[in-house]
Structures are given as structure tokens and as C-alpha cells.
Design a protein around this nucleic acid. Structure first.
Lengths: 242, 242
DNA sequence: CCAATAGTGTCTGTTAGACAATATACA
DNA sequence: TGTATATTGTCTAACAGACACTATTGG
């Protein structure tokens, strides 16, 4: 009934975009990929840093997730990341070009080396930024600061009770490496023994031989049992004194 | 850069809709509001049951949430529900009228009595359906079965560790009533003593005088300390034998 | 043998769950 | 007083966190 008067579909449609928060570990810190907005007088936020993303192309993109994957591969050449939707944001203010709604995803990729920063990108159109440098006072294009903080909040919340950080490491990795990633994302130290107990109990790792040279004593290397989805712990991490 | 060739915004835009899973407790069961699609040859799924929702009206709706609230109040006359976004779904198949993306919210409202079913709606254009009757074989319009199951999954997941079910009760309510709601949503019994301990420890209730007549011994009535957002428990419910 | 990191063992406080016991209303 | 429900108390197993201890490498 509410749709009847508009069955002709002639009314104005909102702009539809997909934006991505692509996380990885770089320089011993959780980092996110930013791209520079193009210059040009008819472009909003020219030259500003933004999350990678853009309009849904209804010719090229069969779905929102496909659109997210396309934009991800355009920027990183990573084809099998962990990808999860954060949510959507839409109003008449966030884009000066008109009423727009964006669908936000976050991706976790292993430390990408140079796969993400081909030579020409030293021409500062793309960069990794440590998330600790992102605050509400950060000036990203559009409302991307807000979107990024929401993605970060989601990530940190789930890290408390899932194996998500494993997707930020290249395989094989060691348990001490994995623990360091947890600590970087959460911003607090974790007990070694408790961490190992939890990780093994969650049963999402398979042994893959000792890794030498990483320190005085070689550590066991592990691979993920299932790279598609994380394992869930029965409880969250929580310090005793809390 | 990816936006440059389209700076004119002349490309085709997806259809943008908002759909709602409005939950309440009815007839001692968790239920969801369904509306009947209008008849008419130019309407998709004529006469089929669907989640309430529809196109975003960029004239009337300043934002997606505002759009969700508008559609909610059109159907239920409830103005202060608990409202949470579930996510968004979009592809070229889900709506026969074209590439469409929908933003899905779920709402929790107290048992509404007749506020939701005014006299004329006995003309079967709107109904409450127990969620236990919803399966993947249910035939709702569009992909609404999938959307509803996602909303239900989200609700059930959060009920394990939040006070969300309290939003399904009219205030004041008793702890046994609240426990029954938890059990209805989760589909399993909970231990009385453990439930009370958790609820009181979470500190989201305020006493509101004894409620007589609900049984042999009157129970304490409670109100929510904050009707805007739920409390979070430190752990999930979990039976010992699991 | 020492330093450094990997990995394990032990202890203890907390707490959820099971279940028993008590409290309070109405008939 | 009896019955039904509300509310509290007790016991125990599980387990996270703290922290000490052992293991294994290179120098």
C-alpha cells in the first residue's frame, strides 16, 4: 500500500556506495588502507584521504558483496580476504552530491608486503595509516571517520571472543605472533598461558611444523583450519581486576 | 579516481529500501509483524506476506533510521521502540523491478495489545506471526524470509549476553516474566537462580513496587534503568553439560 | 653456561549451574 | 493449613588469570 502511489518507480533514488575498511598489521601496528580523493572542481573532498570505495555499478556488480570484493581487488590484489559487513549509513547530508547510502565492509588481510603498494603508489594516492592515529578529530572525506571508527569498534569487539586476528597474519604463524596481534588490536597485554589455552581449546589451528630463526627457541607454526570464518570462544578475554 | 568517469552521476542507481522485523511477545510466543503485499498486476508478489518496509523517500526521510522509524510508526503507532540495524542486502535478483539494496532493522516492542491491530486490520492486511512458524521454506515476498532469519539470528545471539528481552515487555514487569521471555526467545529453559543473579548483577533494573495478583506470592516489579540501550552481561548463558 | 624466547604446570578466586530451602500470598 | 509461586542459600565443577617453572635454541 505504501508503495502503490510509486509503482512507476519514477521517484528520486538515493546514491548507493560501498566503502571498505581494509585492515592489516604494518610496522607492528594495526593499520587501515586510505586512498586520496581525486582533484577536480566537480569532485567532493578533492585531495582528502578516504576509505576505498565508491558507487555500486549495477552493470558490473551482481551484489553488494561482489562490489566490495571488486573494490578490494582493485586496491590490494588480495582475492581471499576475510570480509564482513559492518552495516549501512545513509542520509541527506553525508554526500554533497545528494541523498546517499553507503554499505560498509571491513576486510582483514595478512601483511601484504608490496602487493598493495606498487611502485607508482609512492605518488601518495594510497597509504596505510595506523589506526591509533584515527580519532574523531581525524578529517577523512565524507563521514568516513565515523564509518572507520564503527568498523574498528566492531573489529575490537569481536576480537574479544573470536579468532579474527588470525586473518591478519600470513600462514604459517606462531602462537606468540598471534598473541601479539591480539594485543595490538586490543591495546592491552594478555596472559601467555591463558591465551594459549583458549586458542588451543577453540580448535581452529592445525600444526604446520616448527619455524626456526624467529628467536632463540623455534616455535610451532600453525595454519587456519578454515580461512572462511573465525572460531568463537566461549567467553571474552577479561582481566581479573575488572 | 574510480569515480571520475562518472562525476556526472548520470549512471543508473539501485533501488533503495528499508525493511523491518518488528518483534513482540504475543500469545506466549515471540512473534513478528507481517503485512500483505498489495494486489495489482504491476506489483511484485501481489497478496504475499512481507516484512513491513518500502522505498526510502528522500523528500520525507532525512536518514535511514528516520525512514525505519517512519515505517514503524505507520504500522504500530509505537514511537519509542528498541531499534537496531541488522545489515543490508543488495543484488540484481532480489527485486524483479531491478537492482535493489535494502537496509534491514529489527525493532522490539512490548506486547502491543490493540495498538497495532486497529479494527480494520482484521481485513487481513497485517498480522502477527509466531517466529517458530518461519523456516527457510516459508514463502515471504522478495528475500524477506532470509532477511527475517538474519534478524532473528542476530536477536537470539544477543539475547545470550544482553538484556534485550526486557524491551519486549511492558513496564513494570517481574523477573519471572522476564525469564519466560528469555526462554521463549532462546527456546530453552534457564535456571531460576542463575538468571536472577545475572539480571541483578547487570544492574539494568530498578525496583518499582510489588505486583499483586500475578500469582500466589506477589513479585517485585521492575523498570528499565535506560530504555535506549541494553545492558551487556559478562558472559553468555551456557548450560553446564554443553 | 647464559640469555632469550617457547611452552607447561600449579594455584586460586570467581562464578554459573544445579538444586535445596525458605518466604509470602490466596484459598 | 495447604498450595503455588517468588526469592534466597548452598554446593560444586569449570575455568580464567596470575605467575612460576621447564624446555630449547644460539652465542
Amino acid at each position: 500500500m505504501a508503495r502503490n502511489p510509486r509503482a512507476d518507480l519514477s521517484f528520486q533514488r538515493p546514491l548507493t556506495t560501498v566503502d571498505l575498511a581494509i585492515f592489516t598489521i604494518r610496522a607492528d601496528a594495526l593499520s587501515v588502507l586510505l586512498v586520496r580523493r581525486p582533484d577536480g572542481t566537480d569532485e567532493p573532498y578533492p585531495g582528502a584521504w578516504a576509505l576505498p570505495g565508491g558507487f555500486v555499478d549495477i552493470e558490473k556488480d551482481p551484489s553488494l558483496v561482489a562490489c566490495a570484493r571488486r573494490k578490494l581487488s582493485e586496491k590490494t590484489a588480495i582475492s581471499t580476504p576475510y570480509l564482513e559487513q559492518v552495516g549501512s549509513w545513509g542520509d541527506n547530508k553525508r554526500d554533497p552530491r545528494g541523498w546517499s547510502a553507503t554499505h560498509v565492509y571491513f576486510a582483514l588481510i595478512p601483511n601484504p608486503g608490496d602487493a598493495v603498494e606498487p611502485p607508482q603508489t609512492t605518488s601518495n594516492t594510497i597509504k596505510w595509516e595506523a589506526v591509533d592515529n584515527i580519532t574523531t578529530r581525524t578529517r577523512l572525506a565524507f563521514d568516513h571517520t565515523r564509518l572507520l571508527l564503527a568498523a574498528l569498534e566492531r573489529l575490537r569487539a569481536k576480537v574479544e571472543y573470536t579468532s579474527l586476528p588470525a586473518f591478519l597474519l600470513a600462514e604459517p604463524f606462531t602462537l606468540p605472533q598471534l598473541q601479539r596481534v591480539y594485543e595490538m588490536v586490543l591495546g592491552r597485554p594478555l596472559d601467555k598461558s591463558a591465551f594459549r589455552t583458549r586458542a588451543m581449546a577453540a580448535d581452529f589451528l592445525t600444526e604446520d611444523g616448527l619455524i626456526k630463526g624467529s628467536g632463540p627457541r623455534p616455535a610451532m607454526g600453525y595454519r587456519l583450519r578454515d580461512r572462511r570464518k573465525p572460531a568463537y570462544f566461549p567467553r571474552t578475554f577479561s582481566p581479573r581486576d575488572k
